[in-house]
Amino acid sequence: MNASSVAIPHDHDHDHNGGHDDHHGHITLQYQPGLPLSRGKLIMWLFLSTEIMFFAALLGSYIVLRFGAPVWPKPHHVHLSEPIGAFNTFVLICSSVTIVLALEAARVNKAGLAKFWMLLTLLLGTLFLGVKGYEYSSKFSHGIYPWAPRGHIYERPDLYYGSAVRARLGEPEMIDKLKELDDTEDAYLSNEQIRGRIRLKKVREMVASPDQQPFDLAVVADQIAPLPAEGASHGGSHGHGGGLNDTFPWLKLPMVIPGGNMWASTYFLLTGFHAIHVAVGLLVFAIMLSWKLNAKRAGAIENAGLYWHFVDLVWIFLFPLMYLF
């Protein structure tokens, strides 16, 4: 590439022009790029260097926020499952391999094989997003949302928390529903709901009591949404399904996760931006699948692959920081 784009003087093989023309017109003019790579790849790398800084800012703020925080929730406190995260890591690593194999196939002009690998990459990326969606929905079902008005996470079981629980129980629609629950005969309720009703009654008494102790409010918080014990984030005995919010999903009572608000903000921001990047990559692959992926397209596949590897790279750091720390 370099040799062909350098201006080459032709001094010796054009003698027939005579002496008068020796100093002009014997130069082969060719475009010489500033860097020895195609424009597409150069632009992709420039874009990736801005992306490095974008994700470094996000990851950096997460690390700094996390280690500067007095309390940070343990992964099991916020229903994070390490095996699911590890599975998603594996899926992304596989998709990185398949896109690199698509590029290799395209370079040797095996368009069909290249298409197969790219389709596989697309499927793996979609699987990643599907698992991510499942994870998000399990957070939502436990009342953890990325936006404030829907979120009802309190930092500590203090008086403000107690009054928030009281306020929620005092909402007109709540009063109706609680009365309905109290009037329901035991025969129409499951054992869990019968026990839940007794616990709910006790919680209502405790928050209404004028002389609450901090420990009482901790008991209230534990009854509403207990912090899951380690190893109980999926189907464990304590935690999953143990709180009143799980027994009666319409309750939606405020709950206590120390450090939970900052955790939710950073978790959804980081994984959300990463998921957007994955989705953009999938869109690019979907468009490319309509092409004939022969050697002419190798440059484009390489650029899409560079982007995809970068997305994988971000997840390589996100996974331990989010799930294992």
Partner: peptide, 26 residues
């Protein structure tokens, strides 16, 4: 309003107490 490590301890103690009382539904 800031959460502290003591809040986590308090919640854990509450969970233990509930366990002993047999209050939770599990």
């Amino acid at each position: 309003h800031m959460a502290r490590e003591s809040d986590v301890k308090l919640l854990e103690r509450a969970a233990e107490a509930a366990m002993l009382e047999g209050m939770p539904a599990h």
